[in-house]
Design a protein around this nucleic acid. Structure first.
Length: 478
RNA sequence: GCCUCCUUAGCUCAGCUGGUUAGAGCGGCGGACUGUUAAUCCGUAGGUCCAAGGUUCAAGUCCUUUAGGGGGCGCCA
């Protein structure tokens, strides 16, 4: 395939003297002479120098921010200071003009909130260019990580009939007419007339299906869209997000923690290696943003420093019981500074407690394990103490829970008892129980919130800024 | 869903305890200049102060309601 040159490769190889053609979008046009062209392949724009005395004035007038152009010319050493090479433009073609009076992106800093309202154009900014290049690298690295470790990528269904996963409110999927659906005699909607002849929803997790794959293929992972119809209004939640769910047969909670830690470090390393420039830009952006904040709200580390730190340090591993003890003895708990003061073992941990453990006490990523049975899901393996389950949460600074996982309950009798206790209908999940009936084995897995990972690596504080088109309550534009 | 803050020009924001014709920077338009780096300089246009009610001699400013957005909490990844 013979394509025109990417600006990233021209800037990397600096082929002085050769003729090139670049195609991209105008960022700025200065002094009637310097066109900064960006094609999204790198943070940097390339400078094309036009001879304004020879070029048609009408053509130059079209070189406003946002215009799509092809520019051909010779790569030369730059006379100016800001760049090493530039292109002496010999021919310029404007493919699409961009009315400067109506184009919303100016060569200046825009607020993230404003850019969110023009999500279709925000890819053209330095910040979002960097974010989405990094997002790609992360998603590619996930496949590479698992592929290299003999995991099979399993496509679990997006439409599901089970509503017993317990991971949250679901979006209904139906082809029945909204206004006048067929009804049974008692007036309820007759879903046997629906497309699947029963009620269906969008998936909230591929875990249960991934377990089925793992108990045959040994190691599988899913990576797909996930939907939660919760009315969540936070900087960490989306109604549509992407989740990675590895599931490993013959693995216990320790293996699970090791896998999670190894994966997170691998992903961070890949991004550090592939995107030094984009990360530096985001690092500086974050630093500038934080300099506006009062001193006590600023983070102690810069973005790149934080990423390198996370790769170098072992994650802190604590049991829930140990965490409760730490929290009970903590200053904010004793001085009743927590909104929810920790009284007894068994209490659910709130964000403020997780944040204290990660950001104040351990000062590094934390893996919390072995939570009380009653605050966790039915499928988590009951520990020998009968009070706790083999659950694990990986907590990251600034983000909170980035991974939630567990060793699964593989013993049929125990699982059935727990489902009964928690009122989980067993008929619907007969396939899930069959796996315990025929050749069951210890297994474990976890779910990684992909956007939370992108947030962490890019330092973006709002999850809506790390997915191209965010879906949140009341928001499905674009 | 709960708590809290915000909404003034295309964008970012100022407008003090209510008091004449609502301001700045950037952007636009016109011009000058031309090796610039979010170019610079001169000039100029641009506003239903989110919407609807209310208090007052007087509301961008105070009160109520509504809409949109930010932050925090809950639910979680």
């Amino acid at each position: 395939m013979a394509l025109h040159e990417k600006i990233s490769s021209i800037l990397a190889t600096e082929p002085l003297g050769s003729k090139v053609t670049v195609k991209g979008w105008v960022r700025t046009f200065r002094s009637n002479r310097f066109v900064a062209v960006n094609d999204g392949t790198t943070l940097q724009s390339i400078q094309a120098v036009v001879d304004y005395e020879r070029e048609d004035e009408a053509l130059l007038a079209k070189l406003s921010p946002g215009a799509a152009v092809s520019i051909s010319g010779e790569v030369v050493e730059s006379q100016g200071k800001g760049q090493r090479v530039e292109i002496m433009a010999e021919s310029i073609e404007v493919h699409g003009t961009s009315d400067p009076e109506r184009y919303p992106l100016q060569p200046k800093k825009h607020s993230l909130e404003f850019l969110r309202e023009i999500a279709h154009l925000r890819f053209r900014t330095n910040t979002f260019g960097a974010i989405f290049r990094i997002r790609h690298t992360l998603s590619f690295a996930i496949h590479k990580f698992f592929h290299d470790r003999a995991f099979y990528y399993l496509h679990t269904p997006i439409i599901t009939a089970s509503d017993a996963e317990g991971a949250g409110e679901m979006f209904r999927v139906t082809t029945l007419p909204a206004g006048d659906p067929p009804r049974r005699e008692d007036g309820t909607v007759d879903f046997t007339k629906d497309f699947f002849q029963q009620e269906t929803n969008l998936t909230v997790s591929g875990q249960l299906e991934a377990e089925l794959g793992a108990l045959a293929l040994s190691r599988v992972y899913t990576f797909g869209p996930t939907f939660r119809a919760e009315n969540s209004n936070t900087s960490r939640h989306l109604a549509e997000f992407w989740m990675i769910e590895p599931e490993v047969a013959f693995a216990n909670l320790k293996d699970n923690q090791d896998l999670a830690e190894e994966m997170l470090k691998y992903l961070i390393k890949e991004v550090l290696a592939a995107h030094p420039e984009d990360l530096q830009f985001l690092n500086d952006r974050l630093q500038q943003e934080e300099s506006q904040k009062p001193a006590h709200q600023r983070s102690s580390m810069g973005l790149i420093e934080k990423l390198e730190f996370c790769v170098a340090e072992d994650f802190e591993r604590l049991t829930y019981t140990e965490a409760i003890r730490i929290l009970q003895n903590s200053k904010p708990n004793k001085k009743k500074k927590f909104q929810f003061v920790i009284e007894d073992w068994g209490a659910d941990l709130q964000s403020e407690h997780e944040r204290y453990l990660v950001e104040k006490h351990c000062k590094k990523p934390v893996i919390l394990t072995d939570y009380p049975t009653q605050i966790k899901s039915f499928y988590m393996r009951l520990n020998d103490d009968q009070k706790t389950v083999g659950a694990m949460d990986v907590l990251f600074p600034g983000i909170g829970e980035i991974i939630g996982g567990s060793q699964r309950e593989e013993r049929l009798d125990v699982l059935e008892r727990r489902m009964a206790e928690m009122n989980i209908p067993q008929e619907e999940l007969s396939w899930f129980l069959d796996i315990r009936r025929f050749g069951t084995c210890p297994h474990a897995g976890f779910g990684l919130g992909f956007e939370r990972m992108v947030q962490f690596v890019t330092g973006m504080s709002n999850i809506r800024d790390v997915i191209p088109f965010p879906r949140t309550p009341g928001n499905v534009s674009f």
